[in-house]
Each structure stands twice: as C-alpha cells, then as structure tokens.
Design a protein around this nucleic acid. Structure first.
Lengths: 215, 215
DNA sequence: TTAAGTTTGTCACGGCCGCGACCAAAGCCC
DNA sequence: GGGCTTTGGTCGCGGCCGTGACAAACTTAA
C-alpha cells in the first residue's frame, strides 16, 4: 500500500484494543465496518446451533470484515480475538475511496455480481462442515431451486436436468448414497419426481435440513 | 449494469459458443480472461487426482473466471459447459476499466489483500471435500505453518499456541480424533512437539498429505 | 502447596457412508 | 426392433470417525 494511502486510512480509523476471547463482531450483525489487524491473531468462526466451525485465522496486516463491501449484508461469521489484538476500524466508504478512489456503491455493485459468488461458496462450505449427507443434500437442493427453479403448483420445478452422480459430486458423497437419500426424500414427500425432473417443496425441505433427523 | 457499459463490453468481447461437455477453461491455465455466461448452464469443478468435486453451477447472466482479477493466478478450477452455452469473453483490463473506471493493476492489488482471502478459503474447502481426517489435518497444519511459522533447524515452528480443540474445529473433526491423528503424525516424525508448541516438517507432511495412506 | 479448571491421551461402541457388485430401466444409435 | 451406453436402485462389508467416559498431565488461582 502506498504511504499516503496508509496515512489517510490511519487518520480516518478508530483504534481498537481487544483481549483474548473478546468478540470483534458477531454473526447476524449488519456489516458496517472494515477491520485491519495491526497485531495479534483473530479467528473467524461460523456458529451453527451446536456445531462450531473455525473458518480461518487472521494474522497481522490482514484486512477482514469484508462483507461490508457487499450490498446490505449481515455478518455470516463471528470474529473474536485469539490473542490480544490491536485493530484499526474504518468505514467502508472511506476505505474504498482511499485505496481505489471509487465510491463504495459502485464497487459494491461490481463485487456483488463478480466475487460475490466466492463469498456465497465460502458460506455454503462452512455450513456443510460437520453435517450428514441428508442435510448437505437438502441444502444443495434448496440452493439449486433458488437458482434454477420455477414456481409450480406443487413446489419449485428444477429447470436443469441433473444426474445423481452430479448431485453426489456437488455434495461430496457417493452416487449410491445420494440415490438412496433422494429416495428417502421422495418417500417423505419433500421432493417429487416427474420423469427425470425434480420438483422440490422448499418449505418442507428447509425444515428438514435444519432438524437433527427423524420425521 | 448501465446500458452504455453493457454496450462497451459487448463491443470488446469475443463471442464463444460451446457444446455440452466442452471445456471453457482448464485448471492450471493462466487466468487471462473474464467470462460472462449469456445462455446455458456451466459447471465449475475441482479435480484432485481421482476425486472430482463439483464446486458450483453458473447460470445465465453470471460473471465467472474471476481468478483473472487477482494478480498472477492460475485457474484452480475447471469450467465446462453443462448444457450448450453461449459465452462472452473479455479481457480483465477492459472489464475492470468499463465497469469501474479503474486500471486493472490497481483493483487487482486491492482485491488481493481483501477478498483474496475468500478465494483462498473456497480453494481450501474444495480441496478438503472427500478427504479423510488425516489429509485434512495435514493440509491445515501446512497452511498454518505458512501463515504463522518461522523457520527452525528442525522444521517450521508455529508461533501460535493451538489447542487440539481449535484444530479440530478448523478441520471439522472431533477433538479426540484430532488428538489421535496428531499422535500418529508425531510417531511418524512429521511433527515434533516442544512443550505445547508444534514444529512441523513441511516436506514430509506435504508428501503425506497427498499419498493415499500407509508409511 | 493445594485445589479447581483446562488440556491431552485412550478406549469401546455404534452409526454413517465409501465401495464393489449386480441388475433394472431408460435413452440412443443404427 | 435390437444392441449398447447411461442412469437409477439396492445390498452387504468394512472402515472412518463421532460420542461418552474417564484418567493423567498441565495451568492458574488461591
């Protein structure tokens, strides 16, 4: 980073000292700040009812809390200090204007249609960690429905023809188990098969994806 | 996207028609183009010797092949047409200048220190899918060594004090199995313990992470 | 130093799921 | 229609790993 940019950022940043275990931001919060770690180590974690996933560590010099660069997002992860940290906190508008000389909304829009996909993938994978095939498959189907589905009287019809093998690769499972699980879903009436096309019932599936098991 | 931007992009883009199963770009290639999917569906997949992971689908209107926005990267994923597709191909310089009015190198640099982390996480998770605890743990240790390690006569010393529970959360495994696997690694002399600090031997560990098992 | 809490090490049980095998059904090409 | 390929469905074996339990080692506070 160029010296003048660093100086300008420093002038517009608030300094924050946090102790080990303290929270820097919480999941669910509105993303309204960008953070730069000056010293110490922080960790990013995803909290899914009982499951906790450590998404990654942040080291000195790294910029984090970047969901504030996307339009109207809330934090998907929690960030807490792993050792005592000192952090610079800056508004995204200021950050973007300083390092790029572009208004935030403009960058925000571009990032959303480009690297926004990366963000989505990270969240999806973090979600999947520690889940069984059943939940992963349910999640994947919901995602597909949102992206390639059209509304139908019985649910959401997938406009794309998927083989079980492809679905298996998508959720990281074997073809056989995927077939089996789809059979279960059909028996539980959360998906309907019409020839080789799938109709899914998002409401039921969603419930099912987030309940331990049974039913 | 604004009309004039779209027009300018269109004027500077090459049209590409591909048939189902055709490759749009290969893993390992230099990332020298940005792609916009005009019609059809494409898939992004990660190929790890025998394992194939379907990272995600690309739908009409989406922009992909974005690793070209980061400095000197090669494609980590392969992209192939899932149905017949028509694609617009454009140079990253042109794309960035058109939609943001900023030179590519400038954006590239900024993305690298900000959302570049997302990219890294996606690649890591894609890597981990379908691997056993042994390989995931080896991968995580290597990553930690690169980020928080200092060279030592016997290997790379981790400057950060990790509990087994944290490591377990990082690799998505239980604490007990993590402890056990660390024990194995120590017995195989790919890590050394000095009190509660870890020294890892990257060369050996790396080999071990990419071999089926045994040894 | 003692006591309470945290971290590490080990075990057995049981469940999920990869894997090979095999066959039925559906497309596909001639 | 007749063969061939692709996809879907099912079974059983065996391995990986989550889980609960418990003890030992270490850390921190009193």
């Amino acid at each position: 980073m160029r010296g003048d940019q660093a100086a300008r950022l420093a002038a517009n940043a608030a300094a924050l000292k946090v102790r080990r275990e303290d929270v820097i931001f919480m999941e669910g919060e509105a993303s309204s700040r960008i953070y730069i770690l000056l010293s110490g180590v922080a960790k990013l974690c995803y909290v899914n009812r009982d499951q906790r996933v450590l998404v990654g560590f942040v080291g000195p010099g790294e910029v984090f809390g970047l969901s504030s660069l996307l339009p109207q997002t809330t934090r998907p992860f929690r960030c807490e200090a792993y050792s005592d940290c000192s952090v610079a906190v800056v508004k995204p508008e200021v950050f973007v204007d300083t390092v790029l000389g572009v208004p935030l909304e403009r960058l925000s829009f571009v990032l959303d249609v480009t690297v926004g996909r990366w963000w989505g993938m990270v969240v999806r994978y973090a979600n999947f960690v520690g889940l069984g095939l059943r939940e992963r498959l349910a999640g994947a189907l919901l995602e597909l429905a949102e992206k390639f589905g059209v509304r139908d009287s019985r649910g959401t019809l997938l406009t794309i023809k998927l083989t079980h093998a492809d679905l298996a690769e998508l959720v990281g499972a074997s073809r056989q188990r995927t077939t089996e699980q789809l059979g279960d879903f059909e028996r539980e009436r959360v998906i309907i098969r019409e020839g080789r096309r799938l109709i899914i019932v998002p409401e039921k599936l969603w419930q099912l994806a987030n309940t331990p098991q049974a039913n």
